[in-house]
């Protein structure tokens, strides 16, 4: 029984994996850590940034409304365009009549 156990132990020990030293391993861990921290920071500030963007858009929209001309009714608009119509019949012709 003990012999069998020893044989099994030797078999498994021989099949143990030899690990090669990888110089990039540490860099990869640190890089992943930094990325994770960066993502965490972004997640933390995301609601604040979204709020700031919404507030900014709202503020611009308000400015736009305050500085814009008041909306005119169709009747007012029609009377204004009638006034603006040019008296075309009294204007001198630019085309030479003799030709």
């Amino acid at each position: 029984m003990n012999e069998e156990r020893d044989f099994l132990s030797d078999l498994l020990r021989d099949a143990s994996v030899e690990v090669e030293e990888s110089s990039e391993f540490n860099d990869r861990v640190i890089r992943r850590w930094k990325l994770e921290q960066h993502r965490k920071k972004m997640m933390y500030w995301a609601p604040t940034m979204a709020g700031a963007i919404v507030a900014g858009v709202g503020f611009l929209a308000m400015l736009q409304i305050m500085t814009a001309q008041p909306i005119q009714s169709p009747a007012e608009l029609e009377s204004q365009t009638a006034e603006l119509e040019l008296p075309t019949q009294n204007l001198p012709s630019l085309v030479d009549d003799a030709s």
């Binding site: 994996v17 690990v19 030293e21 391993f25 540490n26 992943r32 994770e36």
Partner: peptide, 27 residues
Amino acid sequence: RQRLIRVASNVLRDRHEAEDVAQESFL
């Protein structure tokens, strides 16, 4: 790192997966 990769390699029998698990463990 060396011991962690070795344990993971012996269990998973996949070098790349073992490195990934070791990195995940540290994180």
